[in-house]
Structures are given as C-alpha cells and as structure tokens.
Simulated assay, not measured.
Amino acid sequence: MPIYMDRHDIPEEITAAHVAQMHREDLKIEHLYGCKGMTYWCDEKRRTAFCLIQAPNKKAIQDMHNHAHGEVPHRIIEVEGSIVESFLGRIEDPEKSQKTELNIINDPAFRTIMVIDLRKVSFSGIDSEGLKEEILQLNKVILTSIEKFLGRIVKQKSDHFLLSFNSVTNAVLCAQEVYTNLSAISKDYNKYFQLNIGLHAGVPVTEKDGIFEDTIKMAERFCDIIHGKIVISPEVRELYESENRNIKLDHENIKSLNVGDEKFVNLLVDYTEKEWTNAAFNSNEFSKNLGYSKSQLYRKMIALTGKSPNTFIKDYRLEKALQLLNKNSNNISETAFNTGFNSPAYFSKCFMDNFGILPSKYVQNYAV
C-alpha cells in the first residue's frame, strides 16, 4: 500500500498536545478508510504538523482526517518509507512516546539539507585508475565528517552526496570540516576536483510533489553556479547565528547569500535551464530576459559566481556535455550540437581548454 505524507498548517492556539489528540482520533477510525497511521511530526515554533500514513489514496486520508477531527491536510504527497527515514530519522513513533497514554511528539520535521559536489575540473596528468583512487580517498574523509556531525545520507554517488541534518550548526560545521580536510589530505586534490557545497533548510512537504523538493533544488543550484565555496542560504545563516550567540559566518570559504542573491540564483538557473541548448543563447539574451542592463548583469554575476555571463554559459554547457559523453560516448559531434556549440571543432577546443583533454580522449579513457 502506498505511503503518504501530509502537511497541516496549525493555528496559534493549537499545541503539540492538541496534535497528539488529533492523531489519536485518527487511529481510532483509520480502519474505516483502509489507512494506517505510522507516525507524525509537530513543530509548534513553525506552526506545522506532518503525518505519515499508509493509505489506498489521498482521498482516503482526507476523509479519515475529516471524520476524526475535521482538520483536513493542506497538502498530501506520496513518499517512500526509506527516503523519509533517511531525511527525518524515523518512520514510527519514538519509543519514549509509545508508553504514554497520549503520544505528544513535539518533534519538528524541519531539516538542513546539504549537497556535496566533487566536480572534476581536469583530467590532465591522471589516468582513470588514479582518478578513482583519488575519489575513494576523498570519499573516506567526507564520510568520516558526516558521521561525526550526525548527518544522514539520503543519496550517495562517488562524486555527489545528498545529506540531512537535524541541527543547522552540525551541518555548517560538517561542511567546514569537509572543506578543510579535503585540501589537507591530498596535494593533488585541487588539480583535479572542485569542492562545491550547498546548504539550505526547509520542511518536507511544500507545493512540490517530492519530499524536501524545494530545499534540495536550492542546495543543488548553489553548487551549480557558485563553485569552490560553501554556499549557505539566508535561513541557514540566521539559524546558525541564533544557535551560536550571534557568531557571524564570515569565513573565507563560506559564501553567505542574502534574500536578493537567492532570488537571483533562481532567476539565473531557471532561464539557463530553459535556453542552454539554443546556440543563439548569449549574454544579450540573459540581460534582456532577467531584467538587468548588461553592466548590471556583469557586475552581479562576477560578484556571485566569479564568472562573466558568457563564461558562465560556456562552462554550464561543458558540464552538460561531460554528462552526455558519459551516456552517449560514441558521438562527439552530436554532443557538441546538443549542448549549444556551433561546431564540433569549437566544442573540442573549449573542452580541451576547460578539462585539459580532448573529448575523444575523455571518451576513450574516462567515460562511465
């Protein structure tokens, strides 16, 4: 039977005890609707509650809630139990609550989400086996820090981690340790890899269809456009500083965004994702459609990404080309045109300039 998570936006007068009573009322009549309540999360501070329920469909959950107490959820999404557990740490009531008459669980579902991206920046001077060994060594360091700071791994590849933290302080400290330790363990690390870390925080159910979808998307976008830094959202910065007696996050390796920066990141990536395959797409199109003059856009992108608009577009296309060559390794010309380059020759030159290897050699030696 499918598993769903719903969201209730609770009024000021509703407490964790009230939510526990509503949950108890659900359990009394859930069998009438073919449902099974697994657990719930209540956050009095943010005025939200989330229920995890096995049910035949969304309507059954709405009808059950309406019958039990009249508090119909504001949003319901389908989820996987294992993914929920990875993000939130449990899919059943905590043991301490099971022995009480009323399960009062004042446990927020709010999480800090971290994306770690080990981006390959050069293949010059290292063979495929050496690259694999380097990645293995870097992964060990990352995993040690994740465990130390109580992070939970939601998804993991050799060069990409999606993590969940209960504590924003632990998330920030973990990111800083990873950043520091990777550079320390390998003199060759910076030759071949660029470490990008994005941190954002949010709740599991929003208007999107996926669990934590908004939060994950934002953290990934931080990694995509601001390289070589730990990039944190305004909310992460504010939470960290409030938890740590207003200690400012002004470290050299941290890029702390303001609300305007975050809005610009979304505008930039939304438009780039829409147009990057179009060979005519250039900085003129950027400024026209993002609502900035050419000089304003240039200054904004240099300040945020360290790149001019045209360099940003070229590098974005090359990253996409690298991904395509891993999937379709036999057609370099097609990859060039599919990523917005006007000619295979120019594509090969740009690829060589960026990665230190021709695309044909990359396909022979590194494509997976």
Score class of each variant (00 low, 15 high):
residue 1 M to T: 14
residue 3 I to G: 00
residue 4 Y to H: 04
residue 8 H to C: 01
residue 11 P to E: 13
residue 13 E to R: 10
residue 18 H to L: 06
residue 19 V to G: 07
residue 20 A to C: 04
residue 20 A to Q: 09
residue 22 M to W: 15
residue 26 D to R: 15
residue 30 E to N: 11
residue 30 E to H: 09
residue 35 C to I: 02
residue 36 K to D: 03
residue 42 C to F: 05
residue 42 C to Y: 10
residue 43 D to S: 09
residue 46 R to G: 10
residue 51 C to M: 13
residue 52 L to S: 13
residue 53 I to E: 10
residue 64 M to Y: 02
residue 72 V to S: 04
residue 74 H to T: 15
residue 76 I to M: 05
residue 79 V to H: 02
residue 79 V to L: 03
residue 83 I to P: 00
residue 89 G to F: 03
residue 90 R to Q: 11
residue 91 I to S: 10
residue 95 E to I: 13
residue 97 S to M: 08
residue 98 Q to T: 14
residue 101 E to K: 14
residue 103 N to S: 08
residue 107 D to K: 13
residue 110 F to S: 12
residue 117 D to V: 07
residue 119 R to I: 00
residue 119 R to P: 00
residue 120 K to I: 15
residue 123 F to K: 04
residue 124 S to R: 14
residue 126 I to M: 12
residue 128 S to G: 10
residue 133 E to A: 14
residue 133 E to H: 13
residue 139 N to E: 12
residue 162 L to T: 07
residue 165 F to L: 05
residue 175 A to D: 06
residue 176 Q to E: 14
residue 178 V to Q: 05
residue 178 V to W: 02
residue 179 Y to K: 07
residue 186 S to M: 11
residue 187 K to Y: 08
residue 189 Y to E: 04
residue 193 F to V: 01
residue 195 L to Q: 14
residue 195 L to Y: 06
residue 203 V to W: 06
residue 205 V to H: 01
residue 207 E to R: 06
residue 208 K to Y: 09
residue 209 D to G: 00
residue 209 D to L: 09
residue 212 F to I: 02
residue 215 T to A: 00
residue 217 K to R: 10
residue 219 A to H: 02
residue 220 E to T: 09
residue 222 F to C: 07
residue 231 V to K: 01
residue 235 E to K: 08
residue 239 L to M: 09
residue 239 L to P: 07
residue 243 E to D: 15
residue 244 N to M: 14
residue 247 I to S: 05
residue 249 L to E: 12
residue 250 D to V: 03
residue 250 D to S: 08
residue 251 H to G: 07
residue 251 H to C: 07
residue 260 G to H: 05
residue 260 G to L: 11
residue 265 V to Y: 03
residue 266 N to R: 15
residue 267 L to V: 05
residue 271 Y to T: 09
residue 271 Y to G: 04
residue 274 K to G: 01
residue 275 E to Q: 15
residue 278 N to Q: 08
residue 279 A to R: 12
residue 283 S to I: 01
residue 284 N to H: 08
residue 288 K to L: 09
residue 292 Y to W: 08
residue 293 S to C: 04
residue 295 S to V: 01
residue 302 I to E: 09
residue 303 A to M: 12
residue 306 G to S: 01
residue 308 S to E: 12
residue 313 I to A: 05
residue 318 L to T: 04
residue 320 K to D: 03
residue 325 L to Y: 03
residue 328 N to W: 12
residue 331 N to E: 13
residue 335 T to A: 01
residue 336 A to T: 05
residue 340 G to E: 07
residue 346 Y to K: 02
residue 346 Y to C: 00
residue 347 F to H: 04
residue 350 C to Y: 07
residue 352 M to G: 04
residue 353 D to I: 00
residue 358 L to V: 02
residue 364 Q to P: 02
residue 364 Q to R: 15
residue 365 N to C: 08
residue 367 A to L: 10
